[in-house]
Design a binder for these strands. Sequence first.
DNA 1: TAAAATTTGCAAATGGCTTGCATTTTTTAA
DNA 2: TTAAAAAATGCAAGCCATTTGCAAATTTTA
Lengths: 137, 137
Amino acid sequence: MPKEYHSKYKSWILDYLKTYKDSRFCATDIHKAMDKDGMGANLATVYRNLDRLVEEKSLNRFKISNEEENYYQYLVPEMGCTSHLHLICRKCGKVIHLNCDFMKKISSHIKADHGFALDCKDSVLVGLCKQCKDSKD
Amino acid sequence: MPKEYHSKYKSWILDYLKTYKDSRFCATDIHKAMDKDGMGANLATVYRNLDRLVEEKSLNRFKISNEEENYYQYLVPEMGCTSHLHLICRKCGKVIHLNCDFMKKISSHIKADHGFALDCKDSVLVGLCKQCKDSKD
DNA sequence: TAAAATTTGCAAATGGCTTGCATTTTTTAA
DNA sequence: TTAAAAAATGCAAGCCATTTGCAAATTTTA
């Protein structure tokens, strides 16, 4: 007997992004994947559930320069995704969690030497992963 | 006798962003500033000239997570703005050029340890500058 | 200096996302 | 249980930043 209404769509979306935690998705990606899985929902419903999941801090929403849509990414609880940066492959959408020692020093460096409080959640590093870089086209 | 048509609007915009090279602007900001300066232009014209300046690599265009519009920033030729990251204050729009030794190591670290080719131009670090962080509201 | 090329303004279109509202589904609580 | 209250959904319309088609104006070319 849950206290809150747990929309089947919301759970489906969360499970899906959790399964593919090393990728980013836009609303349309998710909408299509739901359809394929027999979970057809209205696009407005997809947006509303994404909003809820972001509000609940289960997902992160971010924009990539020179692309239109919002992207969504599962925030892995045990990884502390809000305190490290992420690197996104522009082509395939692969997500790298930059939680190595070197990258973790960035926040304190930026604080100490540049006087800024870095917001890792909203910061996006973009690039090309090796595969995409090497592939033709 | 210039080879190309050099729109007065284009030059105005470039000069303006050059003057404020440590800030970012959206199309509407620029449109309003032109009006104030007696350079009234149609908003479509502003967009078209911004496109040209980005194409010519005089300006960088980027998006900030959880904001709608594109932002534009002057690419300082002598600073090599395409090979260092920038840090943007979410509140006041201040731009910090992260061309210190520490931050310059990031590209090679990301290449060596994570197998990615980082695209500094499209990567955006977001935060709060000291002033904005300390200010009420 | 006339023809060709480019830019501009205007209005309409586009695309991602949001919202209002009536309906359906779920939860609450008697 | 079951009826009222709360939350979620679908649909269509709306919103907002940006783009586009087109005719008129400006600039360049030759």
